[in-house]
Amino acid sequence: MEHFSHTLARAIERKGGEQQLFSLLTSPVQSHQLQALTDADCLAQITKVVFQSGFAWRVIEHKWAGFEKAFWQFDPNKLVLLDDSHIERLMQNTDIVRNGQKIKTVPINAQLMLDIRQQHGSFGQFLAEWPEQDITGLWLYLKKHGARLGGNSASFVLRRLGKDTFVLSRDVTAHLINQGVIDKPATSKTALKQVQQAFNTWQQQVSLPLTQLSQIIALSVGSNERHAE
Rank of each mutant, 00 (worst) to 15 (best):
139 W>A: 05
127 L>S: 09
12 I>F: 00
67 F>A: 01
153 S>K: 13
11 A>T: 09
97 V>L: 15
166 F>S: 03
26 T>K: 15
134 D>S: 10
29 V>Y: 07
135 I>A: 13
124 G>E: 10
143 K>V: 00
165 T>E: 08
223 S>T: 15
67 F>Q: 00
183 D>I: 08
174 A>Q: 13
86 H>F: 14
22 F>Y: 11
101 Q>P: 05
80 V>S: 06
90 L>M: 08
118 Q>D: 12
218 A>I: 00
181 V>W: 07
130 W>E: 03
11 A>N: 07
146 G>F: 02
25 L>P: 04
140 L>C: 05
177 I>C: 10
115 D>S: 13
182 I>E: 06
121 G>S: 09
199 F>K: 00
17 G>N: 04
88 E>H: 12
133 Q>I: 15
209 P>R: 01
169 S>D: 08
213 L>C: 00
113 M>Q: 10
82 L>C: 09
145 H>Y: 12
186 A>S: 06
129 E>Q: 14
58 R>P: 01
23 S>T: 07
211 T>L: 08
154 A>Y: 07
8 L>A: 05
128 A>I: 10
40 A>N: 00
16 G>A: 06
170 R>N: 11
190 T>M: 11
213 L>T: 04
169 S>H: 05
129 E>D: 14
42 C>Y: 06
200 N>T: 12
228 A>S: 15
149 L>C: 07
20 Q>A: 14
49 V>G: 01
78 K>D: 07
71 F>V: 06
20 Q>F: 04
174 A>E: 11
169 S>Y: 09
58 R>Q: 13
185 P>H: 01
